[in-house]
């Protein structure tokens, strides 16, 4: 890391330049409270996420959940939810699909991401791989449907949902790997090569540990995007029902589903909160 050009550039920041900046800027830039400001901005945004979620959890134990008034309290919605059971299979499918998409994303994003960073002109490949991001979800779904079903005449089902989810999630996964890979110094591999490491050793012992945050991020995003995906799935579902499709369909049932959905959301919240906390804690501890 010695002799980094950025540090050399930094050394060129001379006092003359600083004087031109004016006093106000100097005082502002020297102020050490920026960390706290950053923290506060983030906590504000997190509050914006959790105010409705907290209220939702509260409403899930109240008589009329849409009113905004929690009393009288009741657990009956949880009873209804547990005796219903129709949502179990969709939930199961969504979880499995999410896991499969996550692992495929990790694998493909790592392979392709590494390859892209070693290209001379990666611009073209990059743009092609990011195209699905810029097409409205329903249109992408319609495109896949017309192509797979109308033109190729395939029977749609879980496999086509998987394809649609990959089209949606892979660009995100790829970007995450690229962000990390772009900070990777190829000379490390050169050094390893000089020390007699073979291809696999170079990847597994040097490259992978550095890329790991990106690869993990790719997996997490892959799972989350798949778990939530609705717009494309509607088109290519065949006769499968995932969790988002289930919620979407139930919206037309002309019976209030909110009590049940709120209860389900609260259960998911209570399960994922500790599980994900431990997962990230282990991840960071290992990395740190």
């Amino acid at each position: 890391m010695i002799g980094n050009p950025r540090l050399q550039r930094l050394a060129r920041v001379d006092t003359h330049q600083l004087d031109q900046r004016g006093r106000y800027w100097r005082r502002l830039s020297g102020w050490s409270g920026w960390g706290r400001v950053g923290m506060c901005l983030g906590f504000f945004a997190i509050a914006m996420i959790y105010v409705p979620i907290a209220l939702l959890a509260l409403m899930s134990i109240s008589q009329s959940p849409l009113s905004g008034i929690p009393y009288p309290l009741t657990l009956q919605h949880y009873g209804t939810l547990l005796s219903d059971g129709r949502w179990l299979l969709p939930l199961q499918k969504s979880v499995i699909m999410g896991v499969v998409v996550a692992f495929t994303c990790m694998l493909v994003a790592t392979l392709v991401g590494r390859a892209i960073t070693r290209m001379k002109r990666p611009g073209g490949v990059l743009i092609v791989s990011l195209i699905p991001l810029f097409v409205p979800g329903l249109t992408m779904g319609a495109a896949l449907f017309i192509f797979l079903r109308t033109m190729l005449d395939l029977k749609l089902g879980l496999w086509s949902i998987f394809v649609a989810h990959m089209v949606w999630a892979l660009p995100f996964a790829l970007l995450l790997v690229l962000v990390v890979a772009s900070r990777f110094d190829l000379r490390l591999l050169e050094a390893a090569s000089d020390l007699g490491a073979n291809n696999w050793q170079r990847f597994w012992q040097i490259e992978f540990p550095i890329l790991r945050p990106g690869i993990m991020g790719a997996g997490i995003f892959g799972f989350l995007l798949s778990f939530n995906e609705l717009l494309r799935s509607i088109f290519v579902r065949g006769q499968e029902t995932t969790m988002p499709i289930y919620n979407w369909a139930m919206a037309a049932s002309q019976q209030s589903q909110v009590p049940i959905i709120f209860a389900l959301a609260t259960i998911i919240l209570l399960v994922t909160l500790p599980v994900m906390s431990i997962f990230f804690w282990l991840l960071f501890r290992k990395a740190g």
Binding site: L89, Q92, K93, I96, M97, V100, T104, L152, D153, L154, K155, G157, L158, W159, S160, I161, F162, V163
Partner: peptide, 26 residues
């Protein structure tokens, strides 16, 4: 012909997903 092509493509594209999900009960 249709069937053959369908099977082929389905096999290629959805192998992992189908295999895993075929075990879902119900």
């Amino acid at each position: 012909l249709r069937l053959a092509r369908r099977d082929l493509l389905r096999g290629a594209a959805g192998l992992g997903a189908t295999a895993l999900l075929a075990t879902v009960p119900g």
